[in-house]
Design a protein around this nucleic acid. Structure first.
Lengths: 195, 195
DNA sequence: TAACTTTGCGAGTGAATACTAACTAATGAT
DNA sequence: ATCATTAGTTAGTATTCACTCGCAAAGTTA
């Protein structure tokens, strides 16, 4: 796992904040430097290009997410509990650092660069795998109903959660993400959990 | 309802295609003019600015969607059938003109402009209203189960469908959108339809 | 203390961007 | 026949962009 200097982390977080507030189009080296009270050339001491800032930014958050969710999974018992824990962890993280959402859910904004859009699809695949494994385990153990297939359930669950996050973002973070997310997950679980 | 000249429609569709292929960042007046085999100033004969092209583009597709779905709704009987018809119409449209998806599902790409991002949220609200009305009608008539609330079901349904469209887009339109979308919708309906 | 490395700066550079000025050819109405 | 309108052109403009050059100050190491 790659390490970042303090300055690099600062730059990554400032870039994330700017993307969240004003969109990718507004992320310029000039703006970013001003946010950090640095000159433009100073940024190039820490990243060799603007693209590398974006690339590192994605890598940074992917690593964080992977480590966090792996820890969550290893401390859960049954399937339902695990799924609740996974989404709770995600929602807590988004709620604490809203800007992350703009980057992790950014299918369209990095479209212009192959390497970056690939990083974004890694995020999706990662989440997909966690949920698929959970559903499979739950269906095998008889905890979940088998009426709907693993892949269909995975799409419904991730789709419902993403939709909740999106609505929260569009509301200007004024809705209660954690509560709303929980409601959606419980709604779905009530339809598939055998009791 | 506003009318567009033939040239304006051409420009709108060329812009949509370019956004779909290369992202918003690649939509420049120069590129757009080249796509249409025109000079740059020629575009300004038809729209007074680049922003107006984008603004008209969104308006154009919102109108199309509204007209189309209103027609669909007026020719359906029970709730389940109506919901199937709504999503079938959406999926057929996306499948026939894939580039539209990049614009209608573009929460983040128009972030830089208030007027444009407002237009995007209109698209979401529109779909939300159609589905909410359907669920309410279905629950009132006893067609759908009342175990899960209207708003939660709406989020799950729209979320699941959007997720399907997103996966289709990320696959480079290689998956079968219409079939996959139908599978998701039937999966959800199987959990809520009383028979 | 001397040399080296790190991290910053002001002042640029060429390329790209949205948009404009000035002009022209064609069309259509009076 | 004349004249206005429409839709196109070439040749620009000012501004913004990512990025570079050469220099300096402040550690850090020998």
């Amino acid at each position: 796992m790659q390490k970042y200097t303090d300055r690099q982390t600062e730059i990554i977080e400032a870039a994330t904040a700017r993307i969240d507030k004003y969109g990718i189009q507004n992320l310029t080296i000039k703006n970013l430097a001003q946010d950090l009270h640095l000159s433009e050339p100073a940024l190039y001491r820490h990243f060799k290009s603007k693209n590398e800032i974006l690339s590192s930014l994605l890598k940074y958050f992917i690593e964080e997410m992977k480590n966090r969710l792996d820890r969550v999974i290893n401390s859960s018992n049954n399937a339902g509990e695990e799924l609740r824990a996974i989404f709770n962890s995600q929602l807590q993280t988004f709620s604490a650092k809203p800007a992350i959402v703009s980057v992790l859910f950014a299918e369209s904004i990095f479209h212009f660069d192959k390497r970056l859009s690939h990083r974004v699809s890694i995020v999706m695949d990662l989440m997909h795998d966690y949920v698929t494994n959970n559903i499979r385990k739950g269906q095998d153990s008889g905890h979940y109903s088998k009426a709907v297939s693993v892949s269909t359930l995975t799409t419904i669950i991730i789709g419902g959660m993403r939709m909740t996050v999106l609505k929260w973002k569009l509301s200007g973070h004024n809705s209660n993400l954690i509560k709303d997310g929980k409601t959606i997950l419980e709604g779905i679980l009530s339809m598939i959990e055998n009791n």
